[in-house]
Design a protein around this nucleic acid. Sequence first.
DNA 1: CGAAACAGTGTGTACCGTAAACAGTATGCG
DNA 2: CGCATACTGTTTACGGTACACACTGTTTCG
Lengths: 295, 295
Amino acid sequence: MSTDTTPEPTGQPQDPAEQPWDGAVAGEPPATLQRLWGTTAPRRRGPKPALSVGRIVRAAMELADAEGLAAVSMARIAEAVGYTPMALYRYVAGKEELLVLMADAVAADLPDLPADTGWRAGLEAWTRAQIDMGLARPWFLDLPLSAAVPGPHRVRWLDQAFGILREVDLPADEKLALVGLLAQHVLGETRVQVESRRAAVERVRREAGLPDGTPEAELDPAAIDAAHPYAGFEAMLGRYASPATYPHLFEAFAAWDGTTTDAPPEDDIGFGITIVLDGVEAYLRRRGALPAGEG
Amino acid sequence: MSTDTTPEPTGQPQDPAEQPWDGAVAGEPPATLQRLWGTTAPRRRGPKPALSVGRIVRAAMELADAEGLAAVSMARIAEAVGYTPMALYRYVAGKEELLVLMADAVAADLPDLPADTGWRAGLEAWTRAQIDMGLARPWFLDLPLSAAVPGPHRVRWLDQAFGILREVDLPADEKLALVGLLAQHVLGETRVQVESRRAAVERVRREAGLPDGTPEAELDPAAIDAAHPYAGFEAMLGRYASPATYPHLFEAFAAWDGTTTDAPPEDDIGFGITIVLDGVEAYLRRRGALPAGEG
DNA sequence: CGAAACAGTGTGTACCGTAAACAGTATGCG
DNA sequence: CGCATACTGTTTACGGTACACACTGTTTCG
C-alpha cells in the first residue's frame, strides 16, 4: 500500500495462472483466497452447479452451531445439503479450506459499531462484540490456527477498528499491532468465558444426577449462573496443594476469606478489558498519540 | 481452601470408588486426574506392567516435537514404544486423556524463576519463559481447550506467579484473575509469534523455489528474519482494499510510509508485555495494592 | 492349588478425508 | 447443426483414525 497505484475496487480475475504462488509448490493462497473473496470466475460450459460454496459453508456452520466443530465432517455436510460427500469437492478444495471459509463467515454477523464514541469506548465495544460472537459460536475457538486467513468479513471488522482509531495519531503498523493485541486478548477472554461456562454446566448436571448428554436447556439456568467459577480449581487445591508442594498458592488461598471481591468492574469481561485498555492508554500517552484534549 | 483442615502433602489413594464424580455419569475427572497427579494405586495382582504412563507420554511428546501434533496417533506412539496400539489403553483412558497429560508435561520444562526481582520484572520473566516454551514446542498451541486441566507442573508454574505476587496486597481471587489474564495474553502472543514465523519460513521457501516439504534448516536464517511480517497482509490489502470497501484501512495504510517504527520496545514480545503490565500496574495502583515505596 | 486380577494381542467396527475413474449434461466452436 | 470440450455429481476404493471386545498368558492372593 505504500505504492501509488490504486487497486481496483474489487479483485479482478487477472489470470489465475502465472500468480507467483501458483503451482505445485504453493500452499493454499490462490484458489482458497478466490473462494474467500468470492472472485471465482463463473464457469462457461457444462451443467449449472446445483450447489454453491455459500450453501455448503452455511450447512457446515449450522452443523457446528448444533453439535460442535467435531460434528462437522464432509459426510455430514453432504447429507445436510442432500448430495454425496464427493460433490462438495467441486466447490471446495478440501476440509481445511472449508474451515477457512467458516472462520471468515462467522465475522459476518459482527455488528456495525456506532462511530463518534471516543477511541476508548469504541475499542471496548469492538472487543465486547467480538466476545459475544465467540460466546454465541463456541466452535469458533476450536478452529485451527491455519484457518485465520483474512477474508472480507474479517477485514471489514478490522476496518471498523481502524475507524475507531482514526482520532489517534499513530502510523498504520502501530495501530495494527494494537488491534492485534486486542484481538488476541479477545480470543483469550472468550476462551475463559466459554470454558468456565462449560465447566459450570457440567457441574450442575452432575449435581442434578442427569446423564452425560443432557442438553443445557434442561438445566436450571440460575444454578448455572450461581456455580462458583473457581470451584474446580479449589477442589484441586484442597486435594493436592500443601505448604510443602505449592507454598505461595497455599499461603494466598489460606488467607483468602472465600468471598469474591467486586471491586473490579461488575463483570469478568470488563475486568480484562479495563486492564488492557489502561495499558493501551499508557502507550498512546507515551507516544503522544492521544487526541487533542486527552493528551 | 477456606477450611482449616490441612490436606495431605501429596494426594493419597483414598478409595477411588465413592468419589462424587465417579460412575457412568462422570466426565474425565477421576481417572484422568489421578493419572495427572500420579496418584494411581499400584496394582496387586497379575503380571508387572511393562509400560508406564510416563513412557507413553514421553514418546508422544517426542513424536509431537519431531512431526507435530497431527503425527501423534495411538498407532505411532505404540510403534515408538514397541507395543500394539491397544496396549496403550491399559495405561491411558483414551487419546483425549493423553493430550491432557501432554499439556501438563510440557510445563515441566519451565524454569525456576529467580525470586526477589520486583513484581513487574518477575511477571515479565514469567511471561517470557512461557512464550519461549511455546516457541520451542509449537504443537502446544494445537492442543484442544479440553486439555487445559490443572496438573502438577502447570500448578507449580502458577505457584511461581503467586510467589512473584507475594509483595502485592490483593486477595487470592484477584491475583488469580490477573495471572489468568497474563496467561491468556501469553497464549495469544505465542500464537502470533509461531504463526508469523511459519509464514515467513513459507515465504522464503517459496521465493527460493524449494519444494513444499523442505525442512527449515535448509533455508537462509537471515532471510527468514528479514521477511517482512506484514507482507501477506499488505498483498491482501493491495489486491482487495479500496476507499470504497475498506475506507479506514485504506486511509491509514495509504498515509503510511512503509517503515516500521521501533519506538516500542525492540522486540515484538516486549510490545505486548509492556502494554499489559502497564494495565496491571494501573489496576494495582487503583486498588492500593502496590508494595510500599511504589504506591 | 485354584481363582481372580491383571497384561498385552488379534480382530473387527465405524468413522474420517479424499484420490480416481465414471456417466451424464450443457456449452462454444467449426 | 454436430461434436469436442468442459463441467457436473456419483461410485468405488484406499489408507488412516480411535477404540470395543474377546482372547491368551502371567502373576499373586486366599
